[in-house]
């Protein structure tokens, strides 16, 4: 009898462990207001708050992991973390390699920032972060493109004259304008909204996050978060 009780207890314990899933959330931590490292050295921003809320609603324990943008997809695929939540636009190209949840921000135009408003984009040098929809867009246009590994470096390149303009998400550029940098009138409608990236074999987890995003859309809390962090237009 004692053995039986012990056995059941052990079973219950192991079962409990299997349920207490830890989902590792991969993000870049260098793209305010979406995700950045705050003064305390923790990941903060719109996606931090959104991700924590989604995990709460889906009943998951989540752990945040920082990863370089360039290797963010390979590390997801090889299983170092379970989701990408890093302001990643949903594109067909990425969709071939990983899966996306439904978008949590609507598709928004990308904007340019330059030192002066009358910069010549076609004839000049435009910079964008490597492996982004913006970089792909400029390359497709056939303009001169200079890529950098981090968003910070693209803005620095405009400041020191290495590039004439930077193309990026408007919400990110909103945080850098001023102090000599101006936003151009021209916008580009690229990208299909921002979603969470998951492994293609992780259909169950994707379903959970999809449902959580839907519930946040339905009760308006997602719009509140978007408004709070000024990341995009609302649903």
């Amino acid at each position: 009898m004692k053995k039986l009780i012990l056995g059941t207890a052990a079973l219950a314990l192991t079962a409990g462990m299997a349920f207490a899933d830890t989902v590792r959330m991969g993000t870049e931590g260098a793209y305010a207001p979406w995700n950045f490292v705050n003064d305390a050295g923790e990941i903060d921003g719109f996606e931090r708050e959104l991700g924590d809320e989604l995990c709460k609603r889906a009943g998951l324990t989540c752990e945040w992991v920082k990863n370089d943008w360039d290797s963010i997809i390979p590390n997801l695929v090889s299983g170092n973390y379970d989701t990408i939540i890093a302001g990643m636009s949903i594109t067909d190209e990425r969709d071939e390699v990983i899966d996306f949840t439904q978008p949590y921000t609507p598709p928004d135009p990308s904007a340019y920032v330059a030192l002066s408003a009358d910069v010549d984009l076609e004839g000049g040098v435009v910079t964008a972060q490597a492996n982004t929809i913006q970089a792909a867009f400029i390359a497709e246009k056939g303009w001169t493109l200079v890529e950098f590994a981090t968003p910070e470096e693209t803005v620095a390149a405009v400041r020191n004259g290495e590039a004439d303009a930077v193309l990026a998400d408007k919400s990110f550029l909103d945080t850098v304008v001023g102090d000599g940098l101006v936003m151009l009138e021209r916008m580009e409608a690229i990208g299909g909204g921002v979603g969470m990236g998951l492994r293609e074999s992780d259909g169950e987890l994707r379903g959970k996050f999809d449902a959580a995003i839907q519930s946040m859309k339905d009760d308006g809390s997602l719009n509140e978060l978007i408004a709070k962090w000024e990341v995009s237009s609302q649903w």
């Binding site: 299997a18 830890t22 752990e63 695929v77 299983g79 492994r199 293609e200 074999s201």
Partner: peptide, 21 residues
């Protein structure tokens, strides 16, 4: 190997995904 994914059972993950950071 499922397409691009490298999928092993949870118990074989190194370190376990439940392990602290």
């Amino acid at each position: 190997r499922q397409g691009n994914d490298f999928v092993v059972c949870d118990a074989a993950k190194l370190p376990l995904s439940t392990a602290p950071q």
